[in-house]
Design a binder for these strands. Structure first.
Lengths: 227, 227
DNA sequence: CCCCTTCATGTTACATGTAATATCATTATT
DNA sequence: AATAATGATATTACATGTAACATGAAGGGG
C-alpha cells in the first residue's frame, strides 16, 4: 500500500488553548499587563485548569507573558527598550538567515519570495500599513524557513511574536515602507544569484536602519524626560 | 530603613525539579533518548506528578528534551548535524555578543574576562580538557552577560545547554585548545579597546573555525556511509 | 514461520481537591 | 488624614483521581 500521510495527532486541549491565547495576545485582545488567571480562563474556555496552566506556562517560555512566582502570569509588556533589544539580535540572525537562504533555497522558494514582494508592493501603493506589516512578517518568516536551520527559525518566530506586542509603539511612514520593499527586492536578487555575502550584508543593513531609528526614538524620549 | 534586597521567593518544587533534571541531562546521568516518565520521576523524587510534569515541559522548551504527543518526553538527542546548526547560529550571535560587550563592559568586567582566560591557560598547560571546556563556557557566558541584552543572553544559554548534550561527539586536540585560548585573549584585547568591529570579527572567525571543523566531520562521516 | 488479535501494564492528558499565600477593601489606631 | 491591623476573596502550587491511549508480551490462526 502506498504511504498515507501520518495522521495529525488528535488536537490536544493544551495546544488549542495555547494557540487561542497566543492569537489573543498578538491581536491585542489580551493587552500587555493583562493577568492570565488560570481559574478564570478555565471558566471562560470551559475546560479544566490543567491544560490552561500548561498553555500559560508555554506563553511564558515563548516570551509573550511573564511570571511572578506566587503572583501569577501577565501578558508581557514590550517597551521601546525591548524592541531595540530585539532588533539588535535580529540584525544578526536575520543576516544569517539571508545568507543560509541564499545557499539553500530552490527555485520554488525564490518564486514564493517574489510573490510576497508583489503583494507587499500593492500594500505600499495603496498605503495599507497593516498589510505592509503582515507581508513584511511573511517575507522574513519565509527567509527563515528556507534557511533550513530549525533552531534559527524558532528564534526568529519567537522574536517576531514579541515584536508584535511592542509594535504599536513604533511608527512607520509611507516613505520608509517604500524603501523597505525596495530593499526586500534587492535581498531576493542577491539570494537568487546565490550571493550569500551580499544577501547577508543587505539584510543586516536593512534591519540596522530600523534599529537605528529605534535607538533615536529612545534617545529623544529619554531627553524629553530628562528635560 | 535602607532597602533590603527582596527575599528570594520560597523555592518552588517545580524549580528544584527543573534544576535537578537539567543537571542530570547536562552531566550525562540522563543520557539522550532516556524517557522522562512523569510518574516514575514523581516516585523517585518523592513529590507529586504536577511539578514534575511542569519541569519536564520546561525542559522541552529549553531544547533539552523532546516531546512526542501522547508518547511522552525523552532527553534530546543532539546529533553532529544539530551541533552544526547550533554553531551556524553561534557564529552570528556570539559575534553580536562580543560587539555589544565591547560597547558596554566596564573595567570590572574586563578583569573578570582576563581572570577566566588565566584559568583557561592553566587548563591548557596541564592538558586538562574538561577544565578547558568549562572555562570556555564561562568565557562565552560572561561575554553574553556583559553585552546587556537579556534576550541575547537567554539565546546563548539555551544554545550552550543543547551543545553540552552533543559535545561528546566533538573531538578537540591540545593544539586547537592552545589556539582557542590565544583567540580569546585577542578578543578581550579588542573589547578592552572598545573596538566593537574588531571584537565582532574576531569572535565570528573564532566560532567559524569550529563550525567548519564540524562541517568537515559531517562530510567525512557521510562519505564513509556512502562508500 | 509470520501476522493478527488479545490482554496486561504503564503513561499521558485532563479533571478536580485543597493548603498556603497574595490582594484588596474595610475598619481601627495614632 | 495617614498608617496599620483585619478579614473577605481569589489565586497559585501542589496533590491526586481517572479515562483514553500507547506498548509490548502472550496466544491463536493463516
Amino acid at each position: 500500500m502506498t504511504d498515507l500521510p501520518p495522521l495529525r495527532p488528535a488536537t490536544r486541549i493544551v495546544d488549542a488553548v495555547h494557540e487561542s491565547l497566543r492569537e489573543g495576545i498578538l491581536s491585542g485582545v489580551l493587552p500587555p499587563g493583562q493577568p492570565l488567571s488560570v481559574p478564570e480562563l478555565a471558566r471562560r474556555l470551559n475546560v479544566s485548569r490543567s491544560p490552561i496552566r500548561e498553555a500559560v506556562l508555554q506563553l511564558v517560555s515563548d516570551g509573550l507573558a511573564v511570571e511572578q512566582p506566587r503572583r501569577g502570569v501577565v501578558v508581557a509588556t514590550i517597551e521601546l527598550n525591548d524592541v531595540l533589544e530585539i532588533h539588535e539580535i535580529r540584525e544578526f540572525v536575520e543576516a544569517l538567515s539571508a545568507r543560509l537562504c541564499a545557499e539553500r533555497i530552490d527555485a520554488d522558494g525564490v518564486a514564493e519570495l517574489r510573490s510576497i514582494i508583489a503583494r507587499q508592493e500593492k500594500c505600499v501603493a495603496k498605503d495599507n500599513a497593516a498589510g505592509y506589516f503582515q507581508t513584511n512578517a511573511a517575507f522574513h518568516e519565509a527567509i527563515g524557513r528556507f534557511s533550513r536551520n530549525s533552531r534559527l527559525h524558532d528564534i526568529l518566530i519567537s522574536l517576531e511574536g514579541q515584536m508584535r506586542i511592542g509594535l504599536q509603539r513604533v511608527s512607520s511612514e509611507g516613505e520608509q515602507r517604500r524603501r523597505g520593499v525596495l530593499e526586500h527586492a534587492q535581498i531576493v536578487n542577491a539570494i537568487e544569484k546565490r550571493d550569500g555575502d551580499r544577501a547577508e550584508r543587505l539584510m543586516r543593513e536593512h534591519i540596522a536602519k530600523t534599529r537605528k531609528r529605534l535607538a533615536e526614538q529612545i534617545r529623544k524620549a529619554r531627553g524629553e524626560v530628562a528635560a
